[in-house]
Amino acid sequence: MLNERSLPILATLLVFTLLYGFGFVEYNGFRGLLVFSNLLTDNAFLIITAIGMTFVILSGGIDLSVGSMIAFVGVLMAYLVTSLGLHPIPAMVIAIVVGTLFGALMGLIIAYFEIQPFIVTLAGMFLFRGLAYLINVNSVPIDHDFVATLAGFYIPLPGRGYLSFIAIAMLVLLALGMILARRTRFGMNVYALGGDAQSAALLGVPVKKTTIRIYALSGFFSATAGVIFAIYTGSAYPLAAVGVELDAIAAVVIGGTLLSGGVGFVFGSFLGGLIQGVIQTLISFDGTLNSWWTKIAVGVLLLLFIVMQKYIIYWVRRYSSKDEAEKSEAEPAQS
């Protein structure tokens, strides 16, 4: 049904189709499944981060620490594997648990000290980047057969396509995020919190507990993104993923989620991440354009989506007032 809820995500889908369709018409490379497979793999860490960010933004908050978290988790994992000689699996688990706990800690501060998420996660952003430097100042390779196996693993698809381990992990996490958002009480509480925190509290939503869980969840997703990023690049570097928080926020907004909270879908963020990837691919296929055009294009898309969301609010209001007018016209007729 075309309504105020599904319209933004349909717009996202339309933008994606147009961009991809443009590539399809212009470049031979787009016609196989290879480009799409690459999109899934190359943007996996961004999309995973964006899934966690979706929950934060749906609740009316923001998490600026995700980029630093990716770097920190990568460096931590590298340290555990190369310096302490741990097997990558326990190292990944530890890294993800630590990331989740840090997220929960930020949530705790936001919930109990009533400080704006923007500022708490800004502090987190500095902190994680600093901690990463504390462990290691340089870029280190993560030399381990298991990591190499994971990075190399893929399921071949027809049309030169493939599904890498990284892409599979991302799709599993996407499914998890979608179920969590729409099919659990926690998810509905997140939507309620973002729609109107005061009312949500009066309706029995445990605001503090939910807030802590939201940031823990974002910590979990960004930490997992960090692990995926480490596998993807095969190395860890404290200056990695600078500015990813912006790309993640952009993916969420372009995915049709309202930045003020309460409205949006996890799947939209997936599309939003892919759109950024498509723009990048198109620019690299073109060959004459520089990489900064990606940022400018994303900025323009952001503007379009923000203005569209603004217009939708008007639309809903006019729609509802028209509805009332109809009602008041209809009622005298009945009496």
């Binding site: 923007f118 912006l246 900064w292 055009w293 990606t294 940022k295 900025g299 952001l302 923000i306």
Partner: peptide
């Protein structure tokens, strides 16, 4: 926060350009 995000994202590209 939403409005200034746009220039924040696009601005980096513009500066590089």
């Amino acid at each position: 926060i939403v409005a200034t995000l746009i220039l924040m994202v696009a601005g980096r590209g513009i500066a590089q350009m």
